[in-house]
Design a protein around this nucleic acid. Sequence first.
DNA 1: GTACTTATTGAACACTCGTTCAAGATAGCA
DNA 2: TGCTATCTTGAACGAGTGTTCAATAAGTAC
Lengths: 225, 225
Amino acid sequence: MSATPRKHERRLPDDRRRALIEAALRSLARDGQEGLSIRRIAAEAGVSVGLINHHFPSRVALVAEVYRLLHGRLAEAFEAAIRQAVPEARARLSAYFRASFSPRNLDADILHIWIIFWGLSRSTSEIRAVREETYAASLGVLERLIGEVMAGVRPHCSNASGKMGRRPRGLTPKLLAIGLTALLDGLWLEWCLNPATFQPEEGIALCEAWVDGVIERATGRRGAT
Amino acid sequence: MSATPRKHERRLPDDRRRALIEAALRSLARDGQEGLSIRRIAAEAGVSVGLINHHFPSRVALVAEVYRLLHGRLAEAFEAAIRQAVPEARARLSAYFRASFSPRNLDADILHIWIIFWGLSRSTSEIRAVREETYAASLGVLERLIGEVMAGVRPHCSNASGKMGRRPRGLTPKLLAIGLTALLDGLWLEWCLNPATFQPEEGIALCEAWVDGVIERATGRRGAT
DNA sequence: GTACTTATTGAACACTCGTTCAAGATAGCA
DNA sequence: TGCTATCTTGAACGAGTGTTCAATAAGTAC
């Protein structure tokens, strides 16, 4: 009646790689900086230390894959939220904000991982490269949405007191996307350092106000009533 | 004829402490995360490893002092810029932005140190406490300026902390200060991760647009610019 | 059932880490 | 010129690091 006394289980390289990446993500979420340790990742995956270097050329190669996985999950969640929204660009931006501050994404343990990645990207060119690649992708999504809002879709908010100032020059959709990304990153950062600073709905309100105020002004048009 | 062959120089505790804090700051700026090492800090200060624990109870106590020093320098620079500006609150806010993106403050090596502090504040309560303390101080400065801009109050008038005016959607000066801080932090972060993403004057333009658009809207008044 | 490929193990290596503490050096004071 | 207080040194310690690699074992093909 004895079960097979296997000492370990062999898995296909692709399966094992994915399992290691996900274990590393959990280790990072659980232990922060210290979760980067090969031994902790191996323990989290239920595997010996040596296995990681059998599937990844180095530790940073694994971390880079964790970066890609985490970005992919977030990007997928945001794009799903956008797809489910009303087709107007302005409404889709709102959906993006709601997704950004939804309980599902406001996970301090996960958000802290970005801080670790940012720290690594200074000295580790491989991590820096992944950051560039994922930042450009995120920026592109926002740039397109902002461009659509500026181009023709009427803002659904009204501005009772009508006079607009001079049209600010040089606020291109790309620069505005950089600004909005900075605002979002800054709010995420503050929220994960101290969730008591503001409420999620206040974060959304700040983003909405940014769009209503800054994009509308940059477009040089009055808000349609 | 022979110079005294002293093996080391004794210094007063306060002098030595300050020298160690400044050496730690240089070490952090030079080597990033690895610059946190006691041995690197000691080498940067031209001192033996053991001395640090003679003047500081632990390594994090020293790092906390570096945090305070760095914040103090930045805060001093910003407040000097504000003081030198025209007394109108809006102009002082602009001076704050110009100081924020001046070449003197846009030092990637220094900005990277904030990332290290943010990372430490997750696991180290002492660092987290310093972050709270300095964040609250920075926020207070911006909150006061934003409050004055919204109220249309001149800086020398005593500012009663009563109601400042109608604020349609709960965008209080404090919440707006949180948003502006997030925008500034996000822009600093992106700039130090990749200085090629935007130019300093573009960063200033984004902040100005934020004030012109968001604060104006929150106040329910038309633009002052 | 045997041969073979290779996923997996874990000890070993050569570091770095923060902290401790006995021993030594220095400056002020007598 | 001692004497003394204490600033300073640096070896030692125990623990942790990423990576390497010979040995092992699991699953597949024959």
